[in-house]
Design a protein around this nucleic acid. Structure first.
Length: 370
DNA sequence: AAAGGACACAACCGCGGACTG
DNA sequence: TCAGTCCGCGGTTGTGTCCTT
């Protein structure tokens, strides 16, 4: 049978989306939720086809998307998953919260593929291209792929024994042919004279316990000076983000032995933050909310950290939707409450996204409101 | 400083599966 | 069972930006 075009293409706009179009789409979807994509552009007042709207939303505008380059850990996951699933990008993406299939596909084609080839690995078969290639490839647990490891351990990957990994990591420094018992290690030798030896180590994230503040009831604040960037921060599952919600402030925190922070420094409210040289913010700690928003967006280059709470997110949406010439001052209470109504009255699909913002610490909105 | 190439990523295209009447 | 419709997926293209010469 003949296939109907997804939309009447006459008069429809193509190409890059404008900020105005984004606002219309976001506003519509946040107010009405996701319904029939074919009807979305007409209802939202967009000269786009429904498919284009869906792609724009799922790949770029969704508030639960994680932006930025994939971390080494995510890359490792992608490689592992690709070895098992092939080019099923959506399946792969389903294992990486906040990442889209399109993003992973692009990253694979532009980064990982080349990296693997450079290391003498066939990106399709995941096997060495040649036995004579000067690159040493050592892949642990060939018969126990990543997914199986996850299932067997029934644990988040970050829960593996990192002490062992660190030992192995140290071992690697002296012997690149060593076999890491808990991570995938791919070491390459320099292929070009005069170039610094290239060594790529793909491994599980480093121990959380070091340089990490563990608050009461397991809330974790990552300190960004322990050798891995924000994008490498292990995924924190929603159930792991638990904060004691006393009236005004977090009651107390316990710190790891290696942490330079004390509970008292945190208890003095923003002193703790000043110690970190972070922008001022207040901890959102409201028992009326369904959960605490822990939305850390740490710009690795600028060392900026933003923590979103409900109002932040709502105000940002408000700025996005209602104020074309936003100057970053989006703190008016009446506008905030208006937007809160949008949240409160929103149908379930939107509530879903609201929840997702709470769920993932790496979430970031694709707009810069500064 | 300018031109051209390389790169990265957003967006599009078209196919196929799922669903519905 | 089948035609019609919608949505999701994977491959591909277009375009802006960065880098090199």
């Amino acid at each position: 049978m003949g296939r109907q075009p997804c939309c009447d293409k006459v008069g429809l706009k193509k190409g890059p989306w404008t900020a105005e179009e984004d606002k219309k789409l976001i506003s519509f979807l946040l107010t009405n939720g996701q319904c029939c994509w074919r009807a979305v552009p007409k209802l939202a007042g967009l000269l786009r086809c429904g498919k284009s709207c869906r792609l724009r939303w799922t790949n770029y505008l969704r508030p639960d998307l994680k932006r930025g380059l994939l971390s080494e850990y995510e890359e490792k996951m992608v490689i592992d998953l690709h070895a098992q699933l092939g080019n099923r990008w959506s399946k792969i993406a389903s294992h990486l919260p906040g990442r889209t299939d399109n993003e992973i596909k692009n990253h694979w084609n532009t980064h990982i593929k080349k990296k693997l080839k450079k290391m003498g690995i066939d990106p399709i078969t995941h096997k060495p291209l040649s036995n004579n290639h000067p690159i040493q490839i050592q892949v642990q647990n060939q018969n126990q792929p990543f997914l199986e490891q996850q299932e067997q351990s029934n644990q988040s990957p970050k829960n593996v024994d990192f002490d062992d990994q660190n030992k192995e990591k140290e071992k690697e420094k002296s012997d690149t042919s060593s076999f890491d018992s808990s991570s995938t290690t791919i070491a390459t030798e320099s292929k070009q004279e005069g170039k610094e030896e290239e060594k790529i180590v793909m491994m599980m994230p480093p121990p959380l316990i070091d340089d990490t503040i563990i608050m009461e009831n397991e809330m974790i604040i990552m300190n960004n000076n322990n050798g891995f960037c924000t994008d490498e921060v292990p995924i924190i599952e929603p159930h792991e983000i638990l904060v004691p919600c006393s009236e005004n402030s977090p009651s107390s925190i316990s710190t790891s032995s290696s942490s330079s922070f004390s509970s008292s420094s945190f208890n003095s409210n923003n002193n703790f933050l000043k110690d970190l040289q972070l922008p001022d913010f207040e901890w959102s700690c409201n028992n009326d909310q369904n959960g605490i928003i822990i939305n850390n967006d740490i710009d690795d280059n600028n060392k900026n950290v933003t923590l979103w709470d409900d109002d932040d997110f709502i105000n940002c949406l408000n700025s996005l939707i209602n104020d074309d010439d936003d100057n970053g001052d989006y703190g008016e209470n009446d506008e905030s409450s208006k937007q809160q109504q949008v949240f409160d009255n929103a149908p379930s699909p939107f509530c879903q996204y609201s929840k997702m913002v709470m769920d993932y610490s790496e979430c970031s909105w694709p707009y810069d409101f500064s």
